[in-house]
Design a protein around this nucleic acid. Structure first.
Lengths: 255, 255
DNA sequence: CGGTACATTGAAGGGGCTCAATCCACGTGG
DNA sequence: CCACGTGGATTGAGCCCCTTCAATGTACCG
């Protein structure tokens, strides 16, 4: 009833630059640097690892195109999806700051990524602090998503949880121009939604049905449409401020 | 049976410097800078906010002494504790990177904090990149704790969850010198443990009893002793690598 | 000595799980 | 063009882990 990852790509080459540009007014020079950062890309096939747990990495990756998940599998096979990366997201935090990657990251669709050596980032720290700070902010934003995710699984009912999940995904897709006014393509299977939200697959199915029965959303194929944004937001205790730009303290755009 | 926050302080004035020193070999100059950073401290009473949701902040805070929690309360009163800060931890990430603080942080014990203006941090970026990177790493470590926390509430049973929680707390306290070889003082009430792990208070109580009955831990007053580290770690799927220092890519200590 | 805050224990109920069958869409090959 | 295989979604029955509600116990404190 919902979705399965297809080979169709989701994303756009300018998502990363576009996201940072919302944070600080980029100078032409900075834009050039960013574009240059993204000049060498790599293709990753669906279901292949972008990062593998236990490996050592010296680069972060900008996800140019595609959808990927970071996850952990417990000894008995239970899986927890930790987060979902969309085009324009940075992959590898906090993995790359440890001796060995703590989690695997797998591409759900054929994807395009762009490696960014960490040494290069440290170079940015020096010479382009505003860019570095903007990247820094994107980590803060990711941490905020973690927090909301934690509230989801810790204290929200299945119905609230899925409502919140749909709204967050919708909002993130909209920010990068991959959602319509009120609808979007669901990039995840119900099994992945279950593993992200700490639910079982049958219960995800039942809960989605209830959201439809309550006329809060409609689902046709992979297309999810928010029918009553206010009611859904109220149900989920959702508000967008943790996803949208915001400010860089001490770093007002000088121009 | 377990704990309640007392007025007794937990912590030590050098915890923050000490933690960073484990990351990079600090030069005397860098140590001086760090100590200078922590020169002006502030007292916060038990049950007072260190940060309040919705407020605007231009500083991070180093927690010198005491224990605090970051949390969110939903409209109907359910609470999710997002993380627990111990002496030496930085408070205010990611809160201070948004226009308004997303969550409140409350002191559980009388605490000593030290404000660090964000502009000061950006100054560090420039002139002392190794220090800045070490601080940066502490954010990565916090993100890793978020991830483990998410696995706790998403995919671990109550027993596994509490086992993991105890081990993480034990390990963190040990790193800052506030735990013995196999035991530590529990700084949280069962209600706080419940709200951190997405459980009810009675079930926390029952589950702790089971851990005692199974001879995995013993609890006497506030004192928690790990009786069988291996069994407890196996139960919880716990290993310390996400908590302990590790490496700063591209930033080997030059001396 | 009574009050407050926290912990413990029990009984009953429910939300979500497990297990299992069925259904459906789609792609592939004969 | 159809048969079949596969991955995913749906639905149902029964159960269990954990919750809720409520009472009791206990330490500490003014």
């Amino acid at each position: 009833m919902i979705a399965q990852p297809t080979t169709a790509r989701i994303g756009g080459a300018r998502a990363f630059t576009h996201k940072l540009a919302q944070l600080v007014t980029l100078t032409p020079e900075e834009i050039t640097i960013l574009e240059h950062l993204q000049s060498t890309t790599r293709m990753v096939r669906r279901n292949r690892d972008i990062l593998t747990v236990g490996q050592k990495y010296d680069s972060l990756f900008i996800l140019i195109d595609g959808v990927s998940i970071r996850y952990r599998i417990l000894h008995d096979g239970r899986r927890q999806v930790l987060n979902i990366s969309l085009p324009g997201d940075l992959i590898g935090f906090p993995n790359n700051f440890f001796e060995k990657a703590l989690y695997s990251v797998t591409a759900l669709t054929d994807s395009v990524i762009c490696p960014v050596p960490v040494s290069r980032l440290y170079g940015l720290l020096d010479r382009h602090p505003r860019l570095a700070a903007a990247i820094f902010w994107s980590f803060a934003c990711e941490a905020a998503m973690y927090a909301e995710h934690l509230i989801d699984v810790g204290r929200r009912s299945a119905l609230e949880r899925i409502a919140h999940f749909l709204l967050e995904l919708f909002t993130r897709l909209k920010i990068i121009g991959l959602a319509d006014e009120r609808s979007f393509q669901m990039p995840l299977t119900q099994e992945l939604i279950a593993d992200a939200l700490g639910l079982s697959v049958p219960h995800v199915s039942r809960t989605l049905r209830q959201l439809r029965d309550d006329e809060l959303v409609s689902i046709e194929g992979h297309m999810v449409t928010v029918k009553d944004m206010d009611a859904l937001s109220a149900l989920a205790d959702f508000e967008t401020s943790y996803l949208s730009p915001f400010r860089l303290p001490g770093l007002a755009a000088e121009n």
